[in-house]
């Protein structure tokens, strides 16, 4: 599928990796619908893409809402008349241990509550499901060639302190196999699904963190630096153009290893 002339929808497109993906597609001649939670961020990104000469709309929406999902799909179709690419960059973290022990007694003093668990499941898993489901519905009903791109994470391998986040990202990574298997059963041949699992990427979430902690993270990255969001966007662009990529999730990490160089 060619990027130029296609219509791309990016949730979480108002910040972080999603913003770079939106700008990458706009630069390459795609029409872009940006979905985000924060109207001011959306206004900024839409303005910047307009100044680049891109075709763009921005929609404020919460990906965990079915009504909001229907809203941004309808708005995209109203503006551009079709939908070809859906990238689910919307995601959050609420890190914490499942159990915290009292140092003196050794007994459990605190448990991870649903207030920390549920929002991560809702945004990263349910939100991804709703966006992919409704985007696929539009593509099937419209008869358009399409690509669904759930954004997973290298922490799908399991990260201490992220039982909520890692659980959602391993589920997101599994979606392409299930979705394409279902499409094969249903005779849907014109829509592909490829997940992307980025490693540590230079978004505000990481560049703003404690620099010593960041240095420790990078010690296990063969590349020796954070990934640039544009490198993730480039990979997604490659997935659009290479129709052999399908029903899988691709890691892009710069060579992230466990300590002592064991491949993650």
């Amino acid at each position: 599928m060619e990027i130029k002339g296609s219509v791309a929808l990016i949730t979480g497109g108002d910040d972080g990796i999603g913003e770079h993906v939106a700008k990458f597609f706009a630069k390459r001649g795609a029409k872009v619908a940006i979905v985000g939670m924060h109207q001011e961020n959306i206004d900024r990104v839409v303005k910047e893409i307009k100044e680049m000469g891109g075709e763009v709309i921005g929609v404020q929406a919460n990906v965990i809402s079915e009504a909001d999902t229907a809203k941004f799909i309808k708005a995209t179709l109203e503006a551009f008349g079709k939908l070809n690419i859906a990238v689910t960059c919307a995601g959050i973290i609420h890190d914490g241990m499942m159990l915290t022990l009292d140092k003196e007694t050794g007994k459990v003093s605190r448990k991870m509550g649903l207030d920390r668990w549920q929002p991560v499941i809702d945004v990263n898993l349910t939100g991804t499901f709703l966006t992919l489901r409704d985007a696929a519905e539009a593509m099937v009903n419209g008869g358009w060639e399409g690509l669904l791109v759930p954004i997973s994470s290298v922490n799908k391998a399991g990260q201490v302190g992220q039982i909520n986040y890692s659980s959602t990202k391993v589920a997101d990574a599994l979606m392409p196999k299930i979705i394409i298997g279902e499409f094969l059963m249903r005779g849907i041949r014109n829509i592909r699904c490829v997940g992307i699992a980025p490693g540590y990427t230079a978004t505000s979430m990481l560049t703003g963190m404690n620099q010593d902690a960041l240095k420790a993270l990078l010690a296990d990255v063969h590349l020796g630096r954070l990934l640039e969001p544009d490198e993730i966007a480039n990979m997604i662009g490659h997935c659009v153009e290479n129709s052999a990529l399908n029903a899988t999730t691709i890691e892009i990490t710069g060579g992230l290893c466990y300590p002592h160089g064991i491949a993650k």
Partner: peptide
Amino acid sequence: VVGASLFKDLGEVDAGIRALALVRKV
């Protein structure tokens, strides 16, 4: 900016109608 470079081939009247329809959805 709500949307940029939209409805290329439309005249003013039709573009206005489509713009209102889009705004209602957004």
